[in-house]
Design a protein around this nucleic acid. Structure first.
Lengths: 127, 127
DNA sequence: TGCAGTTTTCTACGCTTCGTAGAACTATAA
DNA sequence: TTATAGTTCTACGAAGCGTAGAAAACTGCA
């Protein structure tokens, strides 16, 4: 239960981008304004109903990606983990289902840019 | 369009396991017999109709994961790429959608077993 | 050459997920 | 205590997936 729909992803992107917890209304506005909402820049996001945003937020909460403060009245929503953490976790998930992990890693490393290979060497160096 | 359903995955597992191209009937039998079909061992797979297997194979073909020889009468199906290649590609896909690739890699490396870290070091060494 | 069996394609149905939002309910501020 | 802002409930249509029958296409044999 890890994959996200298009709107769900847009919402997560906003939550990951902002450091503060956001309300449904804030997000709604950002979705309407931001080009992050629908792919390419120059493409203004759609005007969504607040209920739509709330539904999506609930679903994201059920999926464990979002956490909400129920105390305050306009509930405030925030991502449970950073985008980097989440993505890394996803990568592990993908890798995890493979019986031939080493082979996968080999292929993976094989098609990484030189710059990133360098980064990886550094990261692996001091372990 | 990368995610697979449960049955689709079972079929891919069989195709990845065998080296020869297989027919729908062969796969049907293997699905009925193998425990690879449904998770745990000891759990015998279900008896599926051949048409079911064929439908799934067509869908996998459309997704670009499977390739079929139309020449021979019982068509023969095989995986387009190895499981390792496919999985590595998936990992790149997941990583690719992140603007903060380096941060993701850092998190990813951070939670890799020591054995695998060693493997990675070796792989990165001779590049 | 025409049939009987085999294989493939077409069509379809039920279930689940996702985008979308109205209706109804609830808390809050004045 | 009531208008108003916010939340939950319910729902519908599209797409993806498991599943398979019906129909069409093909093959080997009589």
């Amino acid at each position: 239960m890890a994959s996200l729909g298009e709107l769900e992803r847009s919402v997560m992107d906003l939550l990951w981008a902002g450091q503060e917890a956001a309300t449904a209304n804030t997000l709604r506005d950002q979705l309407a304004r931001t080009s992050a909402a629908r792919g390419g820049p120059g493409h203004e996001g759609k005007e969504l109903a607040v209920t739509t945003v709330l539904t999506v937020l609930s679903r994201l909460e059920k999926k464990g990606l979002v956490e909400r403060e129920r105390g305050t009245r306009p509930h405030r929503y925030q991502a449970v983990s950073s985008r980097a953490d989440h993505t890394a976790e996803l990568m592990h998930e993908v890798l995890g289902s493979a019986p031939d992990r080493e082979a996968v890693l080999a292929r993976f490393i094989g098609s990484v840019s030189e710059g990133e290979a360098e980064t990886l060497r550094k990261l692996l160096g001091h372990l």
